[in-house]
Design a protein around this nucleic acid. Sequence first.
RNA 1: GGGCGGUUAGCUCAGCGGUAGAGCGUCUCGUUUACACCGAGAGGGUCGGGGGUUCGAUCCCCUCACCGCCCACCA
Length: 908
Amino acid sequence: MLEKTFDPKSVEPRLYAAWEASGAFKPSQAPGAEAFTIVIPPPNVTGSLHIGHALNNTLQDVLTRFHRMRGKSALWLPGTDHAGIATQMVVERQLAAAGNIGRREMGREAFVEKVWEWKAESGGAITHQLRRLGASCDWSRERFTLDEGLSAAVRKVFVQLYKQNLLYRDKRLVNWDPQFQTAISDLEVEQREVDGHYWHFAYPLADGVTFQYPVVFDDEGKATEFETRDFIVVATTRPETMLGDTAVAVHPADERYRDLVGKDVILPIVGRRIPIVADDYADPTKGSGAVKITPAHDFNDFGVGKRHGLPAINVLTPDARLNENAPAEYQNLDRFVARKAIVARAEDEGWLREIEKTRHMVPHGDRSGVVIEPYLTDQWYVDAKTLAQPALKAVEEGATVFEPKHWEKTYFEWLRNIEPWCVSRQLWWGHRIPAWFGPDGHIFVEETEEEALAAAILHYGDEAPVLKRDEDVLDTWFSSALWPFSTLGWPEKTDDLARFYPTSTLVTGFDIIFFWVARMMMMGIHFMDGQVPFRQVFINALVRDEKGAKMSKSKGNVMDPLVLIDELGCDAVRFTLTAMSGQARDIKLSKQRIEGYRNFGTKLWNASRFAQMNECVRVEGFDPGSVKQPINKWIRGETVKTVAEVTRALEAPAFSDAADALYRFIWNVFCDWYVELAKPILNGDDAEAKAETRATAAWALDVILKLLHPVMPFITEELWDKTAEFGAPREGMLIVEPWPDLPASWIDADAEAEIGWLVDTVGEIRSLRKEVNVPPAAKPPLSVIGAGAETKARLARHRDLLLSLARLDSAREAEAAPAGAVPFVMGEATGALAVAEFIDLAAEKARLIKEIAALDSEIEKTTKKLNNPDFLARAKEEVVEENRERLADAEAAKTKLEAALARLEAVG
RNA sequence: GGGCGGUUAGCUCAGCGGUAGAGCGUCUCGUUUACACCGAGAGGGUCGGGGGUUCGAUCCCCUCACCGCCCACCA
């Protein structure tokens, strides 16, 4: 006998181990089986499972289990990411916390050693947590972005791109993170709005030049008064960069400064003579219309500098202190300290004209949180623009589709405006760039040092040139971009690659469409002969707390999926996430919701318990197509419809539709009605009907277990196992059971109508009993007046059910309602409940009047519609017909209730 | 500045051209032998505002308002 409730804690580890040991997680080798492939978005190797992972991986597992059961050769390929900056940061912090020497003192080799130690220590935690989620990954194929094979793929891609001129080295401004002292890509920069100032500085004109600056204007905007100036005003939010100024720019059409173009100013503090240039970049409507130009520290200024051949003077060190190009007194000062000092000096010396408060966007490193500096360095860039074109085309033409579709716009928007991708990082944890520099700076890009040396020998005609390998590593996302093919064995021509590429569905969050999805598209198409890496991208929502706030440790609103699994069971967590995944962008998760779905599991468990108590066991050779009892024909049809709906939903995929269909069918159809309807038969004397019902119930439960398994794998597998000992033998575990495929002909319209009638009638009577306050224990008799042949037959067939479900003493046909009976509409017939002793006459009158009024308003509305010639002429025939029926029904119902009201009034 | 979402019952959300739905919460009732992690019943919405298209609009179009997110070179 089953226990009263399901105990997830004891069951989950046992079943997971059994699945894994059985080899069920490996793709089937069945001949001709179509492949279904998912590659996991690799979590950080040293990370731990958060609720976002739980959602993302639940959905992947639902798909994998579904397609596995459908007979596909299903592969869910797991793995982890080395997560360059993030991991290096963690280890550096640990070193600092432990009072260790920093990474620079330690040296590269020792530090990387430490990171590997940390990986060995904490890596694997997340994959064990995935197992707790029930993830049916093929662990025998697990990969890591820094493993031998993937590193080889990275080197090959780098070299090939270089040789195809799609990857190059360039000296230009990059986003520089002064804390980590590395370049980062545009995507890793976060614009944050902060309070700041515009400081207006007066730069003195050189050579005694003066000009007339307009100060008063007439109504037409014409200047009427001027002041003589021997300076030009520029505004800046970053005074410290003025030490690197090499020009002042004005707009060529700006009348005010026309005469100054070509003249010089003397840069305060520095004393450098710099030119005033005319450039479109200067916006006459902003500030004073004149702008200081610092080519080495501003992206726009860099462009201006190039156009005008200005020098770029870098005044910052890699950790954002002022360097040797700054006047001695400022050298070594932190950028923000220097800013204050310069403003103070400007004030002292009288060239600070104005301080304006402002809020503006300032770039910050997404990991470090510090202000990013545009910084002039040599870095490696991928020609993303070129690679983006086929990636765009693939989605435009539908080779890869996004679900929901609107995310394609986001994808297009970014790819159409893509900039070169800076892939080098001045870090130590990652794939070291396979580039070697010769003594004269010549670059040799090869997969191995030997090849580089060989190339160098060829190049220099020298026996043993001294090569120095590039110190830098690659952006983590570089290796992630190769994930769909590198994990399958590329560049080797493996069987896996042939079988499982392109992958089927990628399930991921919208926050990494740019970082990851778009780049996989670019790399996959480029290196896999134009074959897209995945046919579908399913974008899942972001999980937030129940108030809609992003979960974060500092807010203390983090919901740990592992704690939730401990408390409420894995299946409940999975079902909740599946049911809520329909949300466009956010999932607001509450524990209450998970409890509700835990209850759902218990409900199913108890339905199985009921079946077991009533000996509903599977019968070998049982054919649901041949059942005779209306309730069995009916539940058979409902089952068929549910199979169709769940199948459709999971194919799409539309996860929440599948969850809804399962919930409704299991709880509201099977438990609420079928089990109740089956009770009289199971407790009755008709042996044949009883046997049929037992077999049908067992069959339907089996289908339920199969349909629910992808979402709730543990409870279903456990029930599958617990019921295995009874009745017909089981072939094996539920996880590899074929997905149900039932004939539509099993939907029986007559049975549906008949049970529908029964359900409606019971509902009507229950509702009525409450309304007129019939005590629950009372069992009034029911009279049915004016029943047609069919209603009479149904009444006869289901009398017992009606009596027990509606709690009636009897149900008989009658000529007229007994005195004081409460009437209700029963199709063409009228039901009358003899409850005279309970009812309040006035209340009953009020009830009838209210119902008649409701019918009146419906009659009025429908009549109006049907009297509209345009409606009759233009609406679809079935809609018109539907309205005619509605009108007829309402009128018939009204007649009945009015008659009842008349009788009531006659009595009262 | 550009773009993308959203605005439907107290809450969280479905529905997306033919009489407004679910779950949770609320209220009332219930110890009927699967289940109180339960059962029965009830109340609750002018589908953000304004235009338009249509026989008919929560659903399509335009517009406004508010909320959220992403992108954008810091004068």
